[in-house]
Simulated assay, not measured.
Amino acid sequence: MSAQGPVLILVGPPGSGKSTVGRLAADQLGVAFRDFDHDVEEAHGLPAGELVVQLGREKFQESERELLSAMLPRFTGVLALGGGTPTAPGVPELLEPFHVVFLDVDLEHLLRREGLVPLHPWLLPNPRAHLKELLNTRRPVYTQVAAATVPTSGRRPEEVLADVLATLPDTSD
């Protein structure tokens, strides 16, 4: 584990609970919380979804990688990455020194998450098909970059939090 950088990084699809569980974990650990999508929006003045449309996927992912590369050595709290961030070229390598947890959620629970589609308009016109494809293509990447996978489907944030915290390495040595 790296001496500098986040104590915990959460990855997973939109709606998996990264921000909710991330805030709870940060509170429990007594550290700061950051939502990487917010950092991207702050850096560019546009929400990530609009930025993808404006820049194109390749340029957007380059921007994400650069921003993440600059942030990782300086931020020592809990970081929730954007759903697509781990899929950007070079990002899996950036994540290697850190403790990453994949918050896994099934399609049916994602579809029931209130407000998911309005927040991610690129899911339209067929949210089920888009989310199914997203899960199928991203799940192997999430699994690759994560030290642990914690299921979130049908579970309360506090239950997920307990499992996430249990994956943290013991630093009492």
Rank of each mutant, 00 (worst) to 15 (best):
E108V: 10
E108Y: 10
V91K: 00
D106K: 09
E96P: 10
V105W: 00
L110Q: 11
H130C: 13
V117A: 06
G82R: 04
K59Y: 12
P125S: 09
P125G: 05
L46P: 09
A88C: 07
V78A: 03
F102H: 13
L55C: 11
K59D: 15
A80C: 07
L116V: 02
R65P: 03
P86L: 01
G115K: 06
H44I: 05
F98S: 06
S69V: 10
H44Q: 12
D104C: 03
L103H: 00
T87E: 01
Q54K: 14
P92A: 03
L68I: 08
N126E: 15
P47T: 07
L81C: 02
E64A: 09
D106Y: 09
T85A: 09
R112E: 14
R74G: 13
E114S: 12
A129R: 12
A88L: 02
E50D: 14
E96A: 15
R57I: 14
P125Q: 08
P127W: 09
E42W: 11
L124E: 14
G115S: 06
H130R: 15
L94H: 08
E64K: 09
R57Q: 15
R65K: 12
S63T: 14
P97S: 05
G45C: 04
F75H: 08
M71R: 13
E58W: 08
T76A: 15
V117C: 06
L119R: 14
D104A: 15
H99R: 10
R112V: 06
A129C: 07
G115D: 05
E50V: 09
G77W: 04
Q61R: 15
W122G: 13
R128K: 08
V100Y: 01
G82H: 05
E93V: 04
Q61Y: 10
D106Q: 10
D104F: 01
V105Y: 00
P86M: 01
G56S: 07
L55E: 11
L119S: 14
H99F: 08
E93P: 04
E96K: 15
E93L: 05
L116A: 06
E108K: 12
F75A: 04
G45K: 01
L124D: 07
A80I: 05
E58R: 10
H130G: 07
L46Q: 14
E58Q: 11
L119I: 04
V78I: 05
G83K: 02
L95S: 03
T87W: 00
L119E: 13
G115C: 07
T76W: 10
E114P: 05
R74M: 12
